[in-house]
């Protein structure tokens, strides 16, 4: 009994990581209806940037965030203005195929720069530290990841609904032409949205790299987990994304408890079940 409870709790905490994968995806879809196939590879890029920072500066991975977050935000802004803005329009093919091409380029560039050997970010004693709560052993690192996810999502929620920048994001999302009439340059606003999304991706990449080993090929899998969290939670609902991540995480740890080979498969099945019975996700955005 306690083992199952443990699996569920571990799954909830794992869900925090998936919510971090998903938050950036959800943000850019919300603002510019862009689905970025390269999102997973950008998470892995952030992990490698974290690796280089820790190695070169000799700092802790969490300190490396101070370098990686602005770097990823900068990459996001340039990527959006230099490339992705040109793909936006009514046709879904250009954004899809361009981000797909970007994914292949990123993957192979990482392979070229860092080889295919698995890497890991070393966070020291925090990796093995744990708290004992009512017979359950909770890892400090998973707890921290989950807390980070909650903080990131609360932060995004605050930016969206309580700041001038968030007002601009929502306005551009509602009606690009009219937003332009109000003096907003949508190319710039989209660039800022991508910068914010990739800053979040930087956090996701570092937390991933501290938790497990990574190599250039695993980006696609991270995209899929993030995507599943978004769809399970319901499009356009950022707290739903956290719930979606948690459901995915719990499904995976329960699957792994039954048979270790089933971990990822069980998550996919949970996603397909939600898609079958609630195609709009469990917590779709309520329109006014």
């Amino acid at each position: 009994m306690i083992e199952w409870l443990n699996a569920i709790v571990q799954g909830v905490l794992l869900g925090g990581l998936y919510a971090l994968f998903a938050a950036g995806l959800s943000l850019i879809f919300g603002v510019m209806r862009l689905v970025n196939i390269a999102h997973g590879d950008l998470i892995i890029l952030a992990a490698y940037l974290g690796l280089s920072t820790t190695v070169m500066l000799g700092v802790h991975p969490f300190v490396a965030l101070l370098v990686v977050m602005p770097a990823m935000a900068g990459i996001g802004y340039v990527l959006q203005r230099g490339l992705l803005n040109q793909t936006l329009g009514t046709d879904i093919l250009p954004p899809l195929l361009v981000t797909f091409g970007l994914s292949v380029i990123l993957q192979n560039a990482l392979l070229e720069g860092y080889t295919a050997d698995p890497q890991k970010l070393s966070a020291g004693s925090i990796e093995t530290a744990s708290l004992s709560v009512g017979g359950l052993s909770l890892g400090v690192l998973p707890l921290l990841t989950f807390a980070m996810a909650v903080a990131v999502i609360a932060g995004l929620q605050w930016i969206f609904y309580a700041t001038a920048l968030g007002r601009q994001f929502r306005a551009v999302s509602d009606n690009q032409d009219i937003a332009q009439l109000m003096g907003l340059n949508k190319a710039h606003v989209f660039g800022l949205a991508m910068a914010l999304a990739l800053a979040v991706t930087a956090i996701a990449g570092i937390m991933l790299g501290v938790r497990t080993s990574f190599d250039p090929s695993i980006g696609g899998g991270r995209l899929i987990f993030g995507f599943e969290a978004v769809i399970i939670g319901g499009l356009g609902n950022i707290w739903g994304t956290l719930a979606g991540g948690v459901i995915l995480g719990v499904a995976q740890t329960i699957g792994a408890k039954i048979d270790p080979g089933w971990q990822v498969l069980a998550g996919h099945i949970a996603f397909l079940v939600v898609l079958a019975i609630r195609p709009n996700g469990l917590f779709p955005r309520v329109e006014h």
């Binding site: 509602d174 009606n175 009439l181």
Partner: peptide, 29 residues
């Protein structure tokens, strides 16, 4: 947006308010 900065504003046909913004947020924008 550049025309707006220059000093020309348009009240568009059909109002076209931002649906996910409140009244005050529309005005602030």
């Amino acid at each position: 947006d550049q025309v707006a900065y220059a000093g020309v504003a348009l009240v568009p046909e059909g109002r076209q308010l931002f649906a996910s913004l409140s009244v005050e947020e529309n005005l602030k924008l």
